[in-house]
């Protein structure tokens, strides 16, 4: 990118028309009406963008909502991000909640929290630690790992408060990948080379090529091995 680009900084409350910047830092409450193209975007607080965002690196501590597409090399989120369009990124790490209305493409996607993706979640490496109900229409990739809640201690207490279950799992139509490990997942179809199911899974159809392992608490309606031709 060219040098000598301006920086945009909003501290407190302010708004901008968008444009091309070197770094954009928003501390407080910012509103951007237009497309944003920058090398670095940092949000501490709240930011609303009415347009597309393109940035090499994005860091959000707080809340960021984008009315268009989000494109970046690296994204780190502590808090919540809403994207109305598509999200495409090389590497994304989220603590909190992410929702995407379109499709989501990432080479590496790690998350602790919850997500909601209306379209396809396509990731090379996917590592999800769910803390709340999550959903995606379809999930595809090479390595897919879905686990529930890193902090096991609380599950017992939760069961005492809500004995009939507290739906914190993942709901999706189709999961397809090479290596798949799932916990607390509701899916219609799971297809892959090596599939392992942990507790709390409910899957209608499994199609695997090499290996299939299943936890005793996982529910599978049918499964079949696909011959390698």
């Amino acid at each position: 990118m060219e040098k000598n680009m301006m920086n945009l900084e909003i501290k407190g409350s302010g708004s901008s028309e968008g444009g091309k910047y070197n770094t954009v830092v928003i501390k407080g409450n910012g509103k951007i009406d237009g497309n944003l193209d920058c090398n670095y975007l940092e949000v501490q607080g709240h930011c609303e963008v009415n347009g597309n965002v393109k940035s090499e690196s994005v860091k959000v501590n707080g809340n960021n909502s984008i009315k268009g597409d989000l494109e970046a090399d690296e994204i780190e989120i502590h808090g919540e991000v809403n994207v109305d369009g598509n999200l495409s990124v090389e590497k994304i790490h989220t603590h909190g909640m992410i929702s995407v209305n379109g499709n989501c493409n990432a080479e590496s996607f790690t998350m602790e929290g919850a997500f909601k993706i209306r379209g396809l979640l396509n990731a090379g490496e996917l590592e999800l630690k769910l803390h709340g109900p999550s959903e995606a229409r379809e999930i595809g990739g090479e390595k897919i790992m879905v686990k529930r809640n890193g902090r096991v201690k609380f599950t017992r207490i939760r069961k005492l408060i809500m004995p009939f279950g507290f739906d914190t799992g993942l709901t999706t139509d189709i999961i397809e990948g090479d290596e798949i490990y799932l916990e607390y997942t509701n899916a219609k179809v799971v297809r892959g080379n090596d599939i392992e199911l942990g507790s709390g899974c409910n899957i209608k159809l499994i199609e695997y090529q090499n290996e299939f392992k299943q936890h005793e608490e996982a529910e599978v309606v049918t499964y079949k091995k696909i011959r390698k031709t």
């Binding site: 090479e142 990948g177 090479d178 297809r191």
Partner: peptide
């Protein structure tokens, strides 16, 4: 169909999704 395609071309789901990305 996707399934037939993968059988026919001997590629994996991972590869297909990677190429799509």
């Amino acid at each position: 169909s996707k399934k037939e395609l993968l059988e026919l071309t001997k590629i994996s789901y991972g590869q297909l999704y990677r190429w799509k990305r």
